[in-house]
Amino acid sequence: MKEQLYKYILGIADNSLILGQRMGELCGHGPSLETDIACTNISLDLFGQVRSYYQYAAKIAGDNRTEDDIAMLRKEREYVNVLLVEQPNTDFAYIMARHFLFDMYHYMFLQELQKSQDLTLSAIATKSIKEVSYHLRFSSDWIKRLGDGTEESHSRIKNSIDDLWTYTDELFHLTDADKVMVNEGVGVDVTKLKDTYYTKVSEILQEATLEVPESKYFQKGGKQGIHTEHLGYLLAELQYMQRAYPNMEW
């Protein structure tokens, strides 16, 4: 049970870690000062959530490991984030499409996690959902602006949604740890969120004058630690200091 809970927490937290790291790459390079500040702020929220989850996971593990060990000293195959969040910052359309497709899931997930029997997880969810509702509003607004903006923005956001769509189905897969935690009343049964997710995403896409992609071919593997090639580079930066200067305090 303890081991499954630990894995379950990582399954939630790794998504925020990797997406937070991606958003952190953008700092100072946004299309306007306001979006730059917003993306930094979103990254900050996600890392705040990551700290709460990993601190809890470290406590569950009960050895001497710390939040930083969990964040920065695992091997590539041990990260269990979904493939969607590790996709690169190709351009602002990809950044917003990735965010939107994740935020919608994240918001719905946290709504359910608030009901968890595990009081720590439910408290983290209650705190995080306020932040994530802002993230979702921000990314949904951008989907509409880009979709219903200019010809160029429409075509860019269309391509990015089409490309990233293949990573959405994985959000609703249950791992073994998930199943155990759902049975315990701790975890969220994400399979039940799927239909509503696609309905809500489709509503925003339609408002943005975008077509809902029809592709039925989906990628998976992140939850089992089988990632896209992008993750390795991201981890190389994330882990650099901890690897180059092991066992030091900062």
Binding site: T40, F47, Y54
Partner: peptide
């Protein structure tokens, strides 16, 4: 901003993000 992705701990990363965000706000 160039060090956000490489900050040595989560605590430092969060503090650095907050600082850089403040600078954008000052701008």
């Amino acid at each position: 901003g160039n060090w956000i992705t490489r900050a040595p701990s989560l605590r430092r990363k969060v503090a650095l993000l907050a600082k850089v965000q403040d600078e954008g706000g000052h701008g």
